[in-house]
Amino acid sequence: MSDGTIRKVFPKIHSLKISNEILEYVFTLPNGLNPKLLKENYFVFLQHFGKSIELEGEFKKYVLTVYQQAMTSELTYNFEEFKESLKEHRLGIIAGLDRYGKYVSFDLLKQPHILIAGETGSGKSTQLRSILTTLIKTKKPSELELYLADCKKSEFHIFRKVEHVQCVLSSPREIKRMLGHIKQELDERSDLTEVFEVDHIDNVPVEHKRPYIVVCIDEFVMLRKDEGIMDILTEIVAIGRTLGVFAILSMQRPNAQVLDTTIRANLTVSMGFKLRDKVEARIVNTPNAEKIETSGRFIMNSDKLYELQAPYLKQDEAKRLLNLFMVSKEAKEVNQEEQPITEKDVFLDVN
């Protein structure tokens, strides 16, 4: 001021919403105040309101939401609780429980291809187990085929004898041959949509119907050096949606070279569990995933950003739920004209 006094200028609060669930402050910053100051001093909000808060906005207008109750820190998998919310989807995925105690689900046909990333112990593996178990329980083997690849040889053995599961692989050589079969299937389905002049494989005549295919690869970063494998994965995520072929890819350490622009742009759902730093969170497109402290908690980026608690499904419980779908499998082939591959061959690398 001209008289030497200092006038303090504060953000202007425009509204305050109070309910049983939240306190919501809508405010604007004074002109000339650097918005970076909010991020740099975010700890002040945490100190005053606690950890159950969310700050959204940019440049000038912001919304601070203070949740009255903290999110649950553990959510036991209970299919009966969320099966109703799956009925509206053709190929439904239960992601987790939000801050308001509501299950968040989505349809792979509308939001195809999932990327899951997280450190060891973050909840990534049990989320994979939960997703696959739910798919098996909601679709018949004639409606859904699962192709599972586990480069660490530790995650998918419990699914090996499930009727929906076409193969469980671990070696890059066998995974490449399996993806060759998927490539052939993509070509055949593409031909069908062209012959019958339809925009989706679901719309071909009944006698030509094909089951949905989900290819799930854990630690696919270990396959990055094989250009043939990466080319087919890129094709799956680029054109698989209209052909009923979907990918679920997971990794512990997100890598920008592996998640190139084409793959990243077509992985429409990203689930970031606890990640090492901001760089990894940015690669997965799940901001603040590096700040997560609770196992099973993750940031999901799909139609919008969510903070969710994933269903926790123990391996023994998964085996019990899957027991109904177990069959005896002998020399089951993954059809590929030149080099048929049998489950006997496949499992040499797993055992």
Rank of each mutant, 00 (worst) to 15 (best):
D3N: 15
T5K: 13
I6A: 05
I6L: 14
R7Y: 10
F10I: 00
P11E: 05
N20R: 12
E21D: 15
I22S: 03
L23C: 07
Y25T: 05
V26M: 08
T28N: 12
P30L: 06
N31T: 12
L33D: 07
L33T: 13
K39F: 14
E40Y: 09
Y42W: 03
Y42C: 00
V44H: 10
F45K: 04
G50H: 07
K51T: 15
I53P: 13
L55T: 10
L55Q: 13
L55P: 14
T65D: 06
M71S: 10
N78P: 11
E84R: 15
S85M: 14
R90S: 14
L97W: 11
G101E: 11
F106W: 11
D107C: 07
L108R: 06
K110A: 10
T120F: 09
S125H: 03
S125E: 01
R129E: 05
L132F: 00
T134W: 04
K137V: 01
T138P: 06
K139P: 02
P141I: 07
P141M: 05
S142W: 00
S142A: 12
S142P: 02
S142V: 08
E143V: 02
E143I: 04
L144N: 01
A149Q: 02
A149I: 01
D150H: 04
C151S: 14
K152M: 07
K153L: 06
S154C: 08
K161P: 00
V165S: 07
S170L: 06
S170Y: 07
P172K: 06
P172H: 05
R177P: 06
H181E: 13
H181F: 14
I182Q: 01
E185V: 15
E185H: 09
E188G: 04
E194Y: 14
V198H: 09
N203V: 03
R210C: 10
I217V: 13
I217H: 02
I217D: 05
F220V: 10
V221W: 04
M222S: 15
D226Y: 10
D231V: 09
A238Y: 08
A238H: 07
R241E: 02
V245Q: 05
F246N: 01
A247S: 08
I248L: 12
S250W: 03
Q252S: 05
R253M: 12
N255S: 09
Q257L: 11
T261M: 07
T262C: 02
G272L: 07
F273S: 02
F273Y: 15
D277G: 05
V279E: 08
I283S: 00
N285K: 15
P287R: 01
P287S: 03
P287A: 02
K291G: 02
T294M: 08
G296E: 09
R297M: 13
I299S: 00
N301S: 11
S302A: 14
S302L: 01
S302C: 08
K304S: 11
L308I: 03
A310R: 02
P311E: 00
D316Y: 04
E317H: 10
R320T: 10
N323F: 11
E330W: 08
V334K: 00
E337I: 12
Q339L: 14
Q339P: 03
D345T: 10
F347Q: 12
D349V: 03
V350L: 10
N351V: 04
N351T: 06
